[in-house]
Design a protein around this nucleic acid. Sequence first.
DNA 1: TCAAAAGTGTTTTACCTACACCCATGA
DNA 2: TCATGGGTGTAGGTAAAACACTTTTGA
Lengths: 231, 231
Amino acid sequence: MENLPAHFDSLFTVDCIIFGFDEGELKILLIERNEDPFRGWFALPGYFVEKTEAIESAAQRILYESTGLKGIYMEQFYTFGALGRHPQGRVITVAYYAMIRLTGQKDVKPVSDFARQAVWVNVKDIPELAFDHSRIFRKGFEKIRNKISYQPIAFELLPEKFTLTQLQNLYEVILNKKLDKRNFRKKMLSYDILKELDEKQKGVSYRAAKLYKFDKRKFAKNFHKELSFTK
Amino acid sequence: MENLPAHFDSLFTVDCIIFGFDEGELKILLIERNEDPFRGWFALPGYFVEKTEAIESAAQRILYESTGLKGIYMEQFYTFGALGRHPQGRVITVAYYAMIRLTGQKDVKPVSDFARQAVWVNVKDIPELAFDHSRIFRKGFEKIRNKISYQPIAFELLPEKFTLTQLQNLYEVILNKKLDKRNFRKKMLSYDILKELDEKQKGVSYRAAKLYKFDKRKFAKNFHKELSFTK
DNA sequence: TCAAAAGTGTTTTACCTACACCCATGA
DNA sequence: TCATGGGTGTAGGTAAAACACTTTTGA
């Protein structure tokens, strides 16, 4: 790169929106900063990309440091590079989202200490975030809202075995609207991408619901067409 | 940025896919490189982002230098940052696409000399490109193919006044499939986003077609819903 | 037996699809 | 008058939307 010294001083970061679904609520993981600038503010997990690191690997590393999880599918959704988005100079940020299974045990724990103080926050209660992270969050949320209507991303957020009502709740939370129960079930089952299990919900004080699994094999077979949930 | 010297050496570029529609063919603008690496290869117009420049401005600048056009809407679609995508080191590239009106006169002329040798190439005849630009092109083309089905981006490529057949041709070229003439017209007109003019095509040796304009006012009013072209 | 959610069908409506002929124009 | 594309309508099928009651279970 010896011909191009004028271009040597740019900073990159990767920031991640990590979605989880727990007790009927869609949440994201935020960290509380204890460094300037924005000391004490909440922010998306993110960090600088190392010199010899691909962006994709940096995103995976940051997810791991924030949650202890590896090998989760992440999707890049936008790159933010306005002047003045970082008070100390021009920083370019590549933003990713990930969706993870939050089991009841809350076993998702940060590994590094830049992310100590990580908290799960309901997407309806996100405070004003550091830098332009509020804007990044809104853009990422909009992306998944769009995507869930034609791609089976919802299943990445649910436990392996789930009820149709849980699945519908998740769609409702992401789309931010009520769906008709009968139409939802009819349509979802018509796609033939779920496997009905011989098992039922346990520990509820009402009629136990059947459990289902997402069936990747069926999905691969049946999906040249796309899902569709509008109303 | 004085605390972060370890992160100071990253290179950014912006690359642009500039689409134009001319004589029934969808084309993009390519430049022929006369610098190493990839001297003599075709590549997407693109260049390094300056230190004090926002990414968005860099994209506008590169479009201007390549075509002489300003103020065209550009959309960022992906950021490429794999190791090894540039032989001289890690370069991160933010990719944009733009759609421009190619009038018959071909009055689109490069302004700077990094883009001397610019040529319009039919998307069906794109050669193997420098760096990973072939991949960037494929990804961008896929994006517009998707987007044209629910957003009125086609009109940016057509002359201000156009016939329904021209519009249909453009859809067919982008979607890479034949559409039914009657169904296309019925559906397109049903959206009520076109203004029928009192004018007809001139200089054709067959029945002259009515001309239409895209009507932004109507579009804004009628589009909570989305366009849809599948078959 | 009560509370809470599970589970289930039908009718109406809108949209998508397939399909073929006559019309207007300039050469 | 011929060649070329412009312009038009309908019927059948499929999917979406609206809508309410009975069943199961544990407390």
